[in-house]
Every structure is written in structure tokens, then in C-alpha cells.
Amino acid sequence: MEEFRWYYPNSIEEAVGLLELQGVVPHGGGTGIIRGKLDRYKGLISLEGLGLDYIKEVDGVVEIGATATYHDVIEFCSALYGECILAKSLSRAASTPLRNRITIGGSVAYFPIWSDLMGPLIALDATVSLVGKNEGEYPVKEFARNRSLKSHSLIKSVKFKRFNGFTYYHRAARTHFDYGSFNITMLASFDNGVFSDVRLVLVGSKAKFQRLSEIENGLIGRSPSDVDVSELIGRIYDSVEFHNTRIGSAEYTRSVALVEIERAVHASFKAMEEQK
């Protein structure tokens, strides 16, 4: 058996340099790596010495360092503002001890289909900052689609503009602590009784993640009384497709997802009503 070793870089440059080594990958919280096949790797790079566990907000832009944990984000966001979509979604992810370990960077790097992070990040139009070969800032959607961006590059942080409007998160799962079968994120702003901004993301479908723009467009500029919700949901029927999921067959999951999307829309109506 080949020697397996740990690297403990003290700077981002040093960490990026280590990425050149064959079979050596960055270690965020480790929860993904431990469960996988360890014999794939020759070494792991601890990111702890890089000071990437920060979360800050400057001029309304939130920046989360790669090694900040889900727990850190929940604490930060809840303290900063009440109805934070990330606090809502991440507090439903995994379990308390795992949330103390799972890092934003590690989560973004793997983005499993049950990710509770991806929906909100897409809805927030977040960007991923990379250092190394592909240094730069990438919209999270692009990053998730193009896995090759990760090669020889290190995730430094995730950034998004703070969102203060209506937030809604639903995750379909068998039990509280479970891999979600799909999740729905909805963000909306209202202006004088009409929707001024709507962002609706479905994660877990065949497309893995999708903005439901038909619905977004069907709401923006309108007041709830002008909207025929079932007609609106009908518009996405063909584009929302699933494989079989943990909660059931592909067709069943689609039916449930459509019901839950409808409920999200109704919840936004109710919120607008209450805001008045």
C-alpha cells in the first residue's frame, strides 16, 4: 500500500501548489471524503491553516470563506437578518454534528443532488471565487455545470448579495435527517401589491437544478389576484422531470414537486397579503 499523507499548507499559494500532486485533494470538513473510497487518494490537503473560515458582509455583499461550516453560516445569517434563506435551508441539511463539520467549500465542490445549499445559492445569484489555474469568479450555476473548473483550482469563497424579501424553502424527504429527494427555494420581493422580483429554483430533478423561469415571469409585475396558479404550474409540467427518488417513482415525485411549487407560490401570496 502506498504511503498516504497529509499536507498542512499555511498559505493559499502553498495550497494551490499542492494541487499539482497526483491523487491529492483538498479536505474541507471531510464528511464527503470519509464516506467515499479512500484508496482513490494519495493524500489530503488540510485547509485549516488558510484562514478561509470567515463570513463577512460588506456593502450588502455576503462572502463566505470555503472552510466556514454550515453551522457558522446559520449562526451568522440568523444573527444578521431574520428570514435568511441560507439559515432556513442549511438548518434542514444533515444533522447538528454534521453541520458542525460540513464546509461551504466542500459542499460547493461536490454539489450532490440532495444539496440544500445549491438552491439558495442559485436563487441568490451567488458566485464562486476560485484561486489557482482557473482563478476568477464564476456564477454558481456555471461552476456546477462545468466540473473541470475545479481542476488545479481551490474554492476560496462564495459571494452573494444579501436578500431581504420573502424567502421560502421546502425539502421533500422521508424523515427529518435524510437526503432530500428534491428541494424548492423561492425568493420574492413585492412592490405595491405586485411581484417585483421572483427567483424560484428546483433542485433534484433530472436537470439537477433549474430556475423555473416560466413561473418567475408569470409572477413578476403581477398581483396575486391576476395569477391563475394552476395554469402557471401547468406551464412547467413538461420541464419538471425526475428520475426515481427516495420518496418514490419519477412520476410520483413530479406530482409532489408540482404541488410543493404551488404551495410555495401560495405562501408568497400570503406573505404579500400580510405585508400589506
Binding site: 444533522s95 422521508r174 424523515t175 427529518h176 435527517f177 435524510d178 437526503y179 427516495r246
Partner: peptide, 10 residues
């Protein structure tokens, strides 16, 4: 993870 029994919140 896949054979589901309840935890306290359930």
C-alpha cells in the same frame, strides 16, 4: 442513511 428510522425531530 437509507434505511430510515426516526430521530427526535420526527
Amino acid at each position: 442513511g437509507e434505511y430510515k428510522i426516526f430521530t427526535p425531530p420526527d
